[in-house]
Simulated assay, not measured.
Amino acid sequence: MASTQMSSFTSSPAVRPVVDTKSPPATDLESGYASGASSASGSTTSLPLISLTKPHIRHLNQQLERMSVQDRLRFVKALFPNLYQSTAFGLSGLVAIDVLSKIQSEDPEAPSVDLIFLDTLYHFNETYDLVDRVRARYPNVNLHVYKPSGAETAAEFEERYGEKLYDTAAELYDWIAKVEPQQRAYAELGVAAELTGRRRSQGGQRDKIPVLEVDEETGIVKINPLVDWSFAQVRNYIAEHNVPYNVLLDQGYKSVGDWHSTSPVKEGEDERAGRWKGQAKTECGIHNKKSRYAQFLEEQQRKEQEQLAAALQKVEIEQRVEVAA
């Protein structure tokens, strides 16, 4: 879906993965970025080559680990072009929004970091209320809302894709409601680097994530600025700085996603224990090493190949019958 406001980055040069033949051997190359075709006249619309090798990423992470959240955000804001923050307005994301607003006040003329919100159409009403309160609190932050293709409401989603798809075909639901809109946002906005709210203390697959990593599928740099903060640290910041937050937090919800797959967390449980409770699942496909989007496409390709093989076999049998006749 179209973003709700025009981004201040729309005139920025988009970056794309490249192969740098002068970089270290392929086994050591993690990712590379460059602007569009360079101009001989030295146009400001082209960016210098940025190659991120594994040793370089290790070095960056060593430095970032020693920084405060504020300094991490200042650093990546200066380092990476086309930087956005992807958020579902959880506590970590809200802290990052507030810190970035304070950094922005130091230099109001500098480009701001826009927000990307994936509206699955199944968020809690309390979440939508929070989105409105965040917009009111931080009016200078552009928010881009992406919804499932061809649907503006849950009713339209169910008419197009079926009722309770999140139960009957969970992986397909993740792709339609979350991963495809995210990929669309990346393409339309020219995202090169993305801030997330992931923290090690959230448990699950997040317990060893670094501050900075490169998504193997998209080549996009992901930065987790609050990676080493605890839930208590995040909540204390929210209270101390009077940051708007989801009122469901006060009802035992420590991590809030879609209403159909989120429940309160008991004392002593992991912070994300309320997400997909009772299922062998901790991520929706957006942050998986191999996303459900890729798995879905592979499955579709496999089915198409099987159908083609069956059709060819049928034709071959029919030809044999004709020859025999």
Results as ranks from 00 to 15, higher is better:
D215T: 03
S3E: 00
Y161S: 04
S35L: 02
R206G: 15
T168S: 14
E159L: 15
A154K: 02
M67Y: 04
G268S: 11
D114T: 04
A14H: 14
G150R: 01
H59K: 13
Q307K: 13
E194Y: 02
D132M: 01
L248Q: 12
Q307H: 10
V247W: 03
K266T: 09
R200T: 10
L308G: 01
I176P: 00
I238V: 08
A192P: 00
I220Y: 07
A187V: 00
T45C: 05
M1T: 09
Q5T: 06
Q202K: 02
V69S: 12
Q300A: 09
P111S: 09
S46D: 08
F124D: 06
Q313C: 03
K102M: 06
L94N: 09
D132N: 03
L312C: 03
R199L: 09
G204F: 05
N288D: 06
A40E: 06
H287S: 11
V211C: 04
N61Y: 08
S92R: 00
L172D: 07
F9P: 00
T27S: 15
Y253I: 13
G219L: 09
A193S: 14
L94A: 15
A78P: 00
K266Y: 11
V315G: 04
N246R: 12
V141I: 11
L248P: 08
L308P: 00
R292L: 12
W276F: 04
L91I: 14
S46F: 08
V99F: 02
L91T: 14
Y138H: 07
D119Q: 00
C284A: 10
E304G: 00
V99K: 03
Q182L: 11
N142R: 08
Q305I: 05
G274P: 05
A110W: 15
L94Q: 15
E156L: 09
K102N: 06
T10Q: 08
T45N: 14
A280C: 01
Y237G: 07
T27F: 06
A88N: 07
A155D: 14
F157H: 09
E156G: 04
S101M: 03
K222H: 12
E152N: 15
L195M: 03
Y138M: 08
R133I: 06
A151G: 07
V243W: 07
P48Q: 08
W259S: 08
A273M: 12
L249A: 03
A273T: 13
N125S: 10
H241V: 06
A151C: 10
E106T: 15
E322Y: 04
E283D: 11
K290G: 15
A14E: 15
Y138G: 03
E106H: 12
T262N: 10
K303R: 14
T168R: 11
N125F: 04
E194N: 09
A239H: 03
R72M: 04
Q62V: 01
L29Q: 13
E213I: 06
P48M: 07
Q295D: 10
P13I: 01
D215Y: 10
V214Q: 08
L249R: 06
